[in-house]
Amino acid sequence: MARTLPALPTVSGPTGTLYRGREGMWSWVGHRITGVLIFVFLLVHVLDTALVTVSPQAYDAVIASYKNPVVGLGEAGLVAAVLFHAFNGIRIMLVDFWSKGPRYHRQLFWGVLAVWLVLFVPFLVRHLSIIFSPVEN
């Protein structure tokens, strides 16, 4: 007796596995790049914080550079990276531990981008208004 297999969904471009092509792969690339970026920042950040044990002036002098608007844009980039890495990390855990996670991994990825946008835009508005206003002292 001839058996017919259910038709496979057709999509353009390489797909079919969790990590090859499309959402699965790009979320992995993004997760990797943001992870390394945050790690490198953290190494520097512990050094600048350590200046509190040198003297108050030494710490304040270095932290003053964090208040420069150009550096402020870099801080916004760091926050963008942290937000993506954090919520994509939750997506990874859902794919690993939630029984329906692998089936919905694409939708989850778009969910990550939605949450990212909802949190990052208000942050950016507030942070930009701070860094482009004069420092009081």
């Binding site: 509190v52 801080e75 926050v79 942050f123 942070h127 701070i130 860094i131």
Partner: peptide
Amino acid sequence: NLMLGDGIHQVDFAFVA
């Protein structure tokens, strides 16, 4: 550190203390 108070402008030695 970035959203509450004066955001990044509030950060200095006294803030950490």
